[in-house]
Design a protein around this nucleic acid. Sequence first.
RNA 1: GGGCCCGUAGCGCAGCCUGGAUAGCGCAGCAGCCUUCUAAGCUGACGGUCGAGGGUUCAAAUCCCUCCGGGCCCGCCA
Length: 582
Amino acid sequence: MFFLIKDEISKSLAHLTNLPKEEILKTLEPSKFCHLTSKIAFLMKGKPPENSQKLADSFPKHKYIKRAEAKGPYLNFFFSESFFSEFLSSPKISFPKTNHDVIVEYPSVNPNKPWHVGHLRNALLGDSVARILSFTGCSVLRMDYIDDLGLQVAQSIWGFENLPKNKPPKKFDHFLGEQYVQVSSKLEEIKEEVVSILHELESGTPKAKKWRKDIVEPCLKAQYQTSFSYNVYHDFLIFESDIMKEVFQKGIELIKSKKGIVFEKEGKNKDCWVVKLSEEFKGMKDADKILIRSNGTATYTGKDLIFQLWKFGEFQEFNYKEFLSQPDSTKAYMSSEKGEKKQAHGADIIINVIGREQEYPQLVIKKVFEKIGMKERAENYKHLSYAPARLPESSFSGRKGTWKGYTADELLEESYKREMQKIGEISNKKENAEKIALSAIRYSFLKIDADKIITFNWDEALALEGNSAPYILYTYVRAKKILEKIQPPELLEFSLNSEEENLLLHLLKFKEIIRKTSKDLRPNYLADFLYEAAVFFNKFYSTSRVIDNGELVPHRACIVKKYFEYCSLSLSLLGLSPPEEM
RNA sequence: GGGCCCGUAGCGCAGCCUGGAUAGCGCAGCAGCCUUCUAAGCUGACGGUCGAGGGUUCAAAUCCCUCCGGGCCCGCCA
């Protein structure tokens, strides 16, 4: 609707001024002084206020425009009732299916510790982006990369085999996480043993298979319990050990065959396969990046490149086994030696949610795609980077154990506790409290721009008032309760008060917000929209009764319905769970 | 040596991409509003050299440059 009216106005203005319609479209914006304003007068010859006045005087009649008026240099438009009326009776919003296949990867936490608030930030961003892209018509695969061959897992295996198993832990990921801290502190003494575990893992020995079954997979299941409690879901878990078996050698051969990747015959990188990036990273001492070492193995970047190539559809498919049935009624599959074939790769857009400290290696991968002639791949390879979550005095370190007390599980527990304190310990409200508790955390993370460091603070993460999920959910419930009381009314003639108008004008922006959110991969835009919509609704609610002395006011009922539609939709796109009551 | 991100009210943030009307919001603190659809709400007042300086422009929180403060990255490691 909003686009439609902008388009109509631009057409008329293009006719009046001979300026290109696209230029005019850009000058049209919502404004607090009117319904829509144009700065077109600045683009024309002559004095802006005079231009503006002329345009206002000669603006043609249109059924959607009540009036056009010059205010200094600005040209202000006011919408007609019939425009609002059409908006109120417009069908539910949806986007047409696109032919984009997107893989979103998150949070790829090492399978040897519980998620802490930093991992949670990653997971929430990824999950929300996946939801939003899926809504905009993309077909989306939610992927988790499992580094089951790394040094961290090897250390945890050592700990599992050698440390005393005292009391059985509540949750396996927490148990492993604490063991890992112990192992890390004495890494020097046990280094050789850890390295030999690492070798077993890399060669995929029977022992390695047993460890995967006894340690890695149970840890993942424990982590996924956390994930589910936050409404975070996946379609595929890809284990590095399976990549190793299935595509690794082929990947190395493929890299070697690519034009743009060179074999160094001399110098410090002698006998390595290297991508030359001195043009791309000017001023860097040594911008060349080794992909394959002189001993023939791939570097971290080389491995990652192979994995990303796999996602884009190079190499064959793996086998998969069902990993878990998820509460959103989808199933998560994990790569596996045996199992069924499934289509888990072949995307044309890849989004990796990775901390911004890995910006450089991610950029390198993008540049390699360009270098080897995969221009389009490079463009569609996206790093959703985010700043860390940290504590006032330290960052989160798995090794040092600074995450203790700040795991995602503990965070949710505390949130639930605070919510229960607020509503009182009444058992039939437990389910609602859980929804509010998880929404509070999700929202407090998602509303912050991904480039901003989150310094973790209990009161902010778990706020129950103001700009918070509980505020939004409360507003949602208010609207829902009204709708439960009424029958869908027939829309009669009406005029709008300013609270009604402001709410509708805000809701009109939804589609553009969604576009922006999915283009920039910034869920906080949508979070803002949702919050502001709630603010406008509450102002409307406090001034404009829908059921006035027992009489239903039809257009207000329609407004509530519209708000409820957009609110529910936005909540689900951000993975927030509305309660039945508050 | 090179590169990236952040700096807006006491605190936490939005606005910056795409320059335009009195710079928005939440928390904290102050003053009000519950016989009517849920007060987790609403209203009012208070609070700002938009890190600093320069430039571009009719117009700069927004674009460009320099500087300051905070964080991060640049291994045949993972």
